[in-house]
């Protein structure tokens, strides 16, 4: 059943609507009362979640009788952004993921944020699917604020992702969708996978398998599920090494994503096409695995090229 959870009139002949699809058992009797919410599209240029929403509904519909709880699907939290290839909310130039919990009496963006929180709050699990950005490709991972670690890591382990990254608390992150819900006791897992503006079906299928597994554990799915892969878990900031460009130029990678690297191995070059020269070689400073890699070739001094996880953590 498709419902509109928030709507606002735009200046010229258009209404902005945020919609969800509530998928529930055909007969109300077999409900266990639990609800999972799948949310995506807070960042308008992150599209990996689009396929996940579609595929999840498609598979449920194939075996509708196996569903014993509510699945709420919110594919487009920022519809204007998705439509216009804009990460933030167009016109306002605001990152929607810095507006939560919002304010019903505030401006349009705050109002929308408040309506969204209102509707999603109370879910037994929320999965907020992001797709990195247009610059970096990420291995399927869940990021968890250290404040909510004990509570969320066991849930994240059921979702068939490759990596769980427990990061430090920061005041800036208090205005995210996930933080707002977690602080209201609605457990919310933030998935980062793939890259902006693209769909990586392989990752999408991997996560959908994981969502079914989690639903089964929650008792809202009675069908067959995979047994999830065991993720690498990191909760120590020293586990992760950042590689930033030392020169402005064009990055050309030499290695593949999620590849094990030896210290001293070349990850790629920053080249100067005008001169036909190599400006810098990016060398792995450790033995480790590359879980983030630069996708967008143009780099400025400081641009992130990749993130490595130390070999010891992976083993």
């Amino acid at each position: 059943m498709i419902e509109t959870i928030a709507s606002v009139g735009l200046p010229v002949g258009e209404v902005l609507e945020i919609k969800k699809n509530r998928v529930q058992p055909d007969s109300g009797s077999n409900k266990n009362g639990k609800r999972i919410s799948i949310v995506t599209g807070i960042h308008g240029d992150e599209l990996e979640g689009q396929y996940v929403c579609y595929e999840l509904i498609r598979r449920i519909n194939e075996q509708r009788d196996k569903l014993t709880g509510i699945v709420d699907i919110y594919p487009a939290m920022n519809p204007l952004g998705i439509d216009s290839i804009t990460r933030g909310i167009p016109a306002f130039d605001l990152d929607m993921n810095r507006l939560f919990p919002g304010n019903e009496d505030g401006d349009m963006t705050e109002y929308l944020a408040a309506k969204i929180i209102n509707d999603v709050e109370g879910s037994d699990v929320v999965i907020d699917i992001h797709a990195s950005n247009i610059y970096l490709t990420e291995i399927p991972q869940i990021r968890i604020n250290e404040l909510h670690k004990e509570w969320l890591v066991p849930m994240a382990e059921k979702t068939n992702i490759d990596f769980i990254w427990v990061h430090g608390a920061s005041t800036v992150l208090e205005s995210t969708f996930a933080y707002s819900l977690n602080s209201r006791n609605t457990p919310t897992l933030v998935v980062e996978m793939g890259v902006g503006m693209r769909i990586t079906k392989e990752y999408g299928n991997q996560l959908v398998d994981g969502i079914f597994n989690l639903m089964r554990e929650m008792g809202i799915w009675q069908g067959q599920t995979i047994s999830p892969r065991k993720p690498v878990i990191s909760d120590n900031p020293d586990d992760v090494v950042y590689l930033n460009a030392s020169k402005s130029g064009v990055f050309v990678p030499k290695v593949k994503h999620w590849e094990k690297l030896k210290k001293g191995e070349c990850i790629g070059n920053i080249i100067n096409p005008l001169e036909g020269s190599v400006l810098d070689e990016i060398i792995s400073p450790i033995d480790g695995i590359l879980f983030t890699i630069r996708e967008y070739p143009i780099v400025s001094e400081g641009s992130l090229i990749g993130r490595l996880l130390r070999e010891e953590v992976v083993r």
Binding site: V8, L10, A91, D105, M108
Partner: peptide, 8 residues
């Protein structure tokens, strides 16, 4: 020249 609803 234009405004959205709920704007201060």
């Amino acid at each position: 020249p234009i405004t959205y609803a709920n704007t201060a």
